[in-house]
Write a protein that binds this DNA or RNA. Structure first.
Lengths: 335, 335
DNA sequence: ACAGTTTGTGTTATCGATAACAGACTCGCA
DNA sequence: TGCGAGTCTGTTATCGATAACACAAACTGT
């Protein structure tokens, strides 16, 4: 026999107080005497009462949600950002409503629509490119919007990110400074992964600025580019441009795949070809040789975003752009 | 000038119908004529109306949430499970409320409490060990509970999982069958990672059943055990038990770290020592040599759980145990 | 001792959608 | 033509907590 679950009114009756007092007892810093609070919590425990945020949300017009969309849940970089976010937001008891877009703007649009219906306190999206409708929805939502992992030309609201193109430029500069000129890039030009595309564009522009040709471009397939695809791409690269001196990959994952392909073919790295990645994933620090890479501080993107949101919830502020400076990390794969 | 956002009543007035009709127009298969639905959606679009699930949830007593806790968001295996889950649940427009416990049962308890307040339709947890209070909360929640990634002795409700101990036993058997007897295990015995502990226990029991000593146990630190910790552990192993013939690691990540340590020390794998992991992560399939491992079909755990939940929402059923059979994958690291 | 504040609690109305019920209308078939 | 079944729309009450206001009791300081 399952009887209806108890409500606040039931707890109130059991504790001999009004529902309002029960409500206050369940809040953080409300004015209830310690004695009554204890009695109320005791009564709630006995009855097996579970606070109903559904009702609370409606009446108080607060959901205590922060909506977050990332391209992929299965990606250590974005996972770090989410971790930074959720740790920063926990202090204020804000819960994360997480969704992944699969690198698909239509899917992002769907997600944003779903999320806005839940009336989040703020919304965080990855990247600066969205469908028109998604953009409109975000603009019209009367909540803080933060775009991350990018520096959009025309931000919707706030931004916590970095220039993917400039980050790759730093790596190109490094190789050119050391006298290497025959450089290649492994990564897709798919519309889907706009950050990957930005990195590729950054590579091409940097090469041109150095007066070098940027024709050694290997498209490794649809994002997210896996280790296996990185390996395949390296196979293509070695076949098509055998005199390549160094290759920059769209991520450490593809870079690691590329490295293993060299190992399988007994192509010595870095002696015969140098390799660099992007993202400073664990695998790149541990593999032999370790991968040169770029660390965009994904955790920090999350924690700075959390800080920003907390301050925005206290007091609205004009749109801000918080720029993160990625760090070049040089290791054995390019030494 | 920010005026109050429009409600269903506003849309109803604009479209010249009753709020109830607007409500129906926003539902899936409700009886509204195509003409009026179009008019209503048009009016909603014009007004910039966004459906408010907060109110809907309260009145209909449905949240369309499924709560899910995983130990770590930054883990490809659990990410796959979540992906399988969310794809299966999308059909019914169920949203996932995701939280990670950081391999901490206290944190899990906090999460479960937070989640139950949101009145999810079902709740999925990873593993079969919980704090007493967490267990009580789950038992009392009048919703389907699914424990995953394990086969608990005393399940709370439903189960979709496998025996971690038995899976490792399969790997031990494989080595012993091939005549190897000096086997080691890398992984923690921390209370925190109960699945890791189960694998370790499975190793010990299997060794004993073969009449072999199981003293080559290297504790690699607190979970989740990283690649770097796997490498350190391999260093210890080679120092303390130099005659070890094969080592089973608690995960592919630590196994890969161990492999790289062998590469740094020029210890040939598999000639001098064989290595096996757990989880069939990408890295293990791509690295050189590729890692022998155990695939517990994490994606399938998610999709089967989703199926189960969908059927439970249609009609309550007695607790079920759905057992997944992990697959032994043999690759170059143990050939 | 008394006005002024702080503290603890209660009363009433309300957040915005929808379940439950009811009624009007259309259609098919005898 | 009439009747039952099906389709579409409206009315009323309600989900469960809490904002806003009110007020008594317990303090504070001069």
């Amino acid at each position: 026999m399952t009887r209806k679950p108890p409500t606040m009114a039931d707890v109130a009756k059991a504790a001999g107080v009004s529902p309002m007092t029960v409500s206050r007892a369940f809040k953080r810093d409300s004015s209830v005497s310690d004695a009554t609070r204890a009695a109320i919590l005791q009564a709630a425990e006995t009855l097996g009462y579970v606070f109903d945020s559904t009702a609370s949300n409606l009446r108080s017009q607060r959901s205590d949600f922060v909506a977050v969309t990332v391209p992929s849940i299965n990606n250590a970089n974005f996972a770090e950002t989410v971790r930074g976010l959720s740790e920063g937001l926990r202090a204020r008891d804000l819960q994360i409503l997480l969704g992944y877009t699969d690198y698909d703007m239509e899917e992002e649009e769907r997600l944003i629509e779903q999320f806005l219906r839940r009336r989040p306190e703020a919304i965080v999206v990855t990247g600066g490119r969205h469908t028109d409708r998604a953009r409109r929805m975000l603009e019209n939502a009367a909540i803080p919007v933060v775009e991350t992992w990018d520096l959009p030309e025309d931000p919707i609201g706030h931004v916590v990110g970095f220039s993917n193109a400039d980050a790759v430029r730093g790596m190109v500069d490094h190789f050119v400074r050391r006298g290497l000129t025959r450089l290649a890039f492994i990564g897709g030009d798919a519309q889907r992964d706009t950050r990957g595309t930005d990195r590729r564009r950054g590579f091409i522009r940097a090469m041109q600025d150095h007066g070098l040709e940027a024709h050694r471009l290997i498209d490794a397939g649809a994002p997210p580019i896996s280790m296996a695809e990185g390996a395949m791409a390296m196979g293509l690269l070695l076949a098509r441009f055998p005199d390549t001196q160094a290759v920059i990959c769209v991520s450490d994952l593809s870079a690691f795949g590329a490295l293993t392909e060299c190992q399988r073919r007994a192509v010595p790295v870095p002696e015969r070809i140098e390799i660099a990645g992007f993202g400073d994933y664990d695998v790149g620090a541990v593999c032999v040789p370790a991968l040169s890479t770029i660390n965009p501080f994904p955790r920090q993107i999350g924690s700075r975003t959390a800080e920003l949101i907390l301050s925005l919830l206290d007091a609205p502020q004009p749109p801000r752009v918080i720029e993160i400076t990625p760090e070049l990390i040089l290791r054995g794969s390019s030494a």
